[in-house]
Design a protein around this nucleic acid. Structure first.
Lengths: 159, 159
DNA sequence: ATCCAAATTTTGAATCTGTACAAATAATAG
DNA sequence: CTATTATTTGTACAGATTCAAAATTTGGAT
């Protein structure tokens, strides 16, 4: 569903030691599948589905059972090491936790583009719901990506 | 996944005539299923899954095949008459297109709450992607809804 | 009013994601 | 090293969405 490549907005992935510490600090054990899945996702970069992660793992050596990939992804999310990408309904996408950012989705080619978040705007969003405790704000922008915008303009001119 | 009822933020649904015109203006035919699905969604209000729409249609008379509901929903989205709700991965939810607004999702009770959008903030979001044509911006706010926030406070005090 | 070509609907089955469960296994405390 | 308990794994399952092919309907032309 989502066409996607590397991410222009990201922090650097964690090493095994810090990774382990973070897992333990949340009461989670450090296991093979979790390290493998995290590294696969970090190595691929960008936004990836559980299936894409599984495939890349298999490509790199012995494969992990599908269920294990799902389990590991869930554990990593719980540990705050990776995030579920807010990019609308459909297949769940994950990304290594890095700097806060938003997402742009092209309605034509489905490209998913990271957009640096403006902390000022971000701040105003967080105070928008009276009575509620707003913990995070994700923005989904939709429209035509730069490439499709170009193509669209070209088509309008010539024919 | 999403617990939900009517929407506090909405425009008034379109009549058959304007509905038809809008479909035609996008090269889409005016068909029974499309009108039925639109009206069902408009009548229910709020954020609804394809299944909820199908059920409400069946309850009101002759039922539509599930596939037809999906087809009609897609056509209506293409025509810009309804919107896909950005509320994270999972079942796709739809709503009649009305005033622009955002969504708040409670991490505890999964309540999905409409949040009026601040046009100022909205404006800044729309200009955030150089080269791209940003057509819409939806915001997903996450945290504790007012009720769960209350419960949380109460628990902190007493126990 | 009628006919035609193309767009849609319909039917039924297939697919794709994600989850539930129970038994086997591995990670950590002591 | 051993016990305890979290995890992993393999299998089965459920729900959402899509697909292919045949039947029908729409909108424009005759």
């Amino acid at each position: 569903m989502a066409k996607d490549s590397g991410s222009p907005v990201s922090g650097q992935p964690l090493g095994v030691d810090e990774l382990s510490e973070r897992l333990r600090s949340r009461g989670l054990r450090v296991t093979g599948p979790r390290l493998i899945v995290y590294n696969a996702l970090a190595h691929q970069g960008g936004h990836r589905s559980a299936d894409e992660v599984a495939v890349s793992i298999t490509a790199a050596g012995p494969s992990l059972p599908r269920t294990s990939v799902y389990n590991a992804l869930k554990a990593l999310v719980d540990a705050g090491l990776i995030d579920v990408v807010d990019a609308g309904p459909g297949t769940t996408l994950y990304e290594v936790r890095g700097e806060s950012h938003h997402h742009f989705i092209c309605r034509q080619c489905n490209a998913l583009i990271d957009v640096p978040s403006d902390s000022t705007v971000d701040g105003s969003l967080l105070s928008e719901v009276p009575g509620a405790t707003v913990e995070s704000a994700q923005v989904i922008l939709r429209g035509l990506c730069p490439e499709c915008t170009q193509r669209s303009k070209a088509r309008a001119k010539s024919g």
